[in-house]
């Protein structure tokens, strides 16, 4: 496979280190050749686009220009928020006026001939399913999981152009192939409360609480996510949610790459399972006949 630029996103250095390290480990195992975007900077995340679209696009486009400088035409990111920002920037910059405004803010102009994809999309479209199956040493047999995609990985469809926008299946298919029992989670694309955890914790408690409740009622052992913000709201804030709603959720919330790595028998430290706030070991213990990992 051709080299793909890799944009980790700021949370990959902090609250989602285990997403970053497990993503890298799984890519290595599946021969997806990632090269870090040289000297990448913040894409602007959601705050920038709520202030101004030219500013937001410029913060993203600086990174697209870095990728162009590396001579690559594809960049993959694990984070749906980064994905949205990078794709939105390129999409809007197709209009000359907008592109000129953005480039006027940049040292190095961006030509927008780089396509941004999620790492999940790369797995789905560019990795042979047979290769994945051949590498499974620790099938996830015996656990029931709910796959939660978050609100922006597939929406709006005109911009994201990947999977179904009401009922995405890419993660379901992967988890199924790894042996897990995947439940039909009805809230796959509902919002978790986004970045309002700090200024309006009540909103996150209500929206993430709804997701945890739906997963529990479905009989899920755990939730599986593809977004650092969703994962943080559901996992790190699960105690706050319990206090706010008088609940007692104890639902482990994995990154899908952690479970992939687990099934592929990859180095546990890279999977960062001990970084999760809600202890996942009881659920992992349900996996039938675990094969000891070197």
């Amino acid at each position: 496979m051709a080299k793909i630029a890799y944009y980790p996103g700021c949370s990959g250095l902090g609250t989602s280190v285990e997403y970053d390290s497990s993503t890298r480990a799984v890519c290595r195992a599946l021969q997806v050749d990632l090269v870090d975007v040289e000297d990448w900077s913040c894409c602007g995340s959601s705050p920038a686009h709520t202030v101004n679209h030219v500013l937001s696009a410029a913060l993203s486009a600086r990174n697209l220009a870095q990728v162009e400088g590396m001579g690559l035409d594809q960049v993959a990111t694990p984070c749906p928020s980064c994905l949205t920002n990078l794709r939105t920037a390129a999409h809007k910059m197709a209009h000359q006026d907008f592109r000129d405004q953005v480039n006027a803010l940049l040292d190095i102009p961006c030509r927008t001939n780089v396509e941004t994809k999620s790492v999940l999309q790369v797995f789905d479209e560019q990795v042979d399913p047979q290769l994945i199956l051949s590498k499974v040493v620790n099938p996830l047999t015996g656990i029931k999981i709910a796959c939660y995609y978050g609100c922006i990985m597939n929406r709006p469809p005109v911009l994201m152009r990947f999977d179904d926008h009401e009922n995405p299946m890419a993660m379901d298919r992967l988890m199924c192939a790894l042996g897990a029992e995947v439940l039909p989670f009805p809230l796959k694309v509902e919002c978790c409360g986004a970045s309002y955890g700090i200024p309006r914790g009540d909103i996150v408690a209500r929206l993430s609480g709804k997701l945890l409740d739906a997963a529990r009622r479905l009989g899920a052992d755990c939730l599986v996510t593809a977004c650092p913000l969703c994962q943080m709201n559901l996992d790190l804030r699960q105690g706050q949610i319990n206090r706010a709603l008088g609940e007692n959720f104890q639902m482990p919330v994995f990154y899908y790459t952690q479970l992939m790595g687990y099934a592929l028998g990859l180095d546990r430290t890279e999977l960062g399972l001990n970084k999760l706030c809600v202890d996942p070991h009881r659920v992992l213990g349900k996996i039938k006949q675990p094969v000891p990992v070197k």
Partner: peptide, 29 residues
């Protein structure tokens, strides 16, 4: 999960200049 020090970005000044030019330009977008 919360490093005490920011990770250095060499292009930090390039990013700061994006904000500076944005403020000077008074852009509506």
């Amino acid at each position: 999960k919360l490093p005490f020090k920011p990770h250095p970005v060499q292009g930090r000044e390039q990013v700061a200049r994006i904000f500076e030019r944005f403020r000077q330009g008074g852009i509506n977008g």
